[in-house]
């Protein structure tokens, strides 16, 4: 699709996201140091590592919140390294936050409706004069928002202010809002944080379900190992800003370096 390679079937070879030698320095500290990995189209990948390994920093780099110090980020084969955050979102990369960031004083419906804005094309003058295109597109946006809320099981809470939703549903609403952009790549930053095992299980099912339903690729940061091992097809492990391991869940879990990073070195006396 990107036109990089005209051969049929080649599109599948281009990873949806590729990091090449990605580095981010804060002063003298390299929070992310020469990290390279790729995400296959349509898969669920995991990004794991101990606290402070640089996982969220990588999300901030991909989404343009931080400026990259060195290296590059390719989305469907073309660089997005120096784009403004909203442009990256427009291209189809969006995310949720570790500490939920909803539009707190808006209703659940308005949270989703706001994020649907890219599906409408009418200009401000058309809105002020309420021209036919405004009416038509607003109606379509409302249908889209309500549909998403329905799919995500939030329809009966659509009129509640986001702030008044229970914690689990706030996380769910944040994912719903992200889906409103019709993203190609969804980045989930610790979606199961603060959830009990039961809710985590539900979330796992939800993630696999939306991946299939919306045909997107997902990259998830998570500490719940059962969630990561349960849903991810591919895992990348970070430690102190550097890549530590990369591969299938089973391979990664058995990697002595990974075990060491998480549990500490075995005492060899």
């Amino acid at each position: 699709m990107s036109g990089a390679d005209p051969r049929p079937g080649a599109a599948q070879a281009v990873p949806v996201l590729e990091l090449r030698g990605l580095t981010k320095r804060f002063g003298g500290l390299a929070a992310v140091n020469d990290v390279s990995f790729a995400i296959r189209e349509g898969g669920i990948s995991g990004l794991i590592g101990p606290n402070g390994a640089g996982k969220t920093t990588i999300f901030n780099l991909i989404t343009g919140v931080y400026k990259v110090s060195a290296g590059s980020i390719l989305f469907k084969g073309s660089p997005i390294t120096d784009l403004e955050p909203y442009r990256i979102a427009d291209l189809g990369v969006t995310r949720t936050f570790q500490n939920i960031r909803l539009f707190k004083n808006l209703s659940a419906r308005d949270n989703v409706l706001t994020a649907c804005h890219m599906s409408a094309r009418y200009g401000l003058a058309e809105a002020i004069l309420r021209l036919p295109r405004y009416r038509r597109e607003e109606k379509a946006l409302a249908v889209k928002a309500d549909g998403l809320l329905e799919i995500m099981g939030l329809a009966d809470r659509a009129d509640l202010t986001a702030n008044n939703l229970p914690y689990g549903l706030q996380r769910r609403l944040e994912i719903t809002r992200a889906l409103a952009l019709d993203p190609t790549l969804l980045l989930l930053d610790e979606p199961a944080a603060g959830m009990n095992p039961d809710e985590t299980e539900q979330l796992m099912l939800l993630i696999s379900d939306i991946r299939k339903r919306f045909g997107l690729s997902v990259l998830v940061i998570e500490h719940h190992m059962d969630l990561i091992m349960g849903v991810c097809e591919h895992i990348h492990v970070l430690n102190f800003g550097c890549s530590l391991a990369d591969g299938d869940p089973a391979v990664v879990a058995g990697d002595p370096k990974v075990v060491e990073a998480y549990l500490g070195q075995e005492d060899e006396r």
Partner: peptide
């Protein structure tokens, strides 16, 4: 409401 989240929703 939330500037960062707005940007992540593709809002300039």
């Amino acid at each position: 409401e939330e500037e960062l989240a707005a940007q992540m929703a593709g809002i300039d």
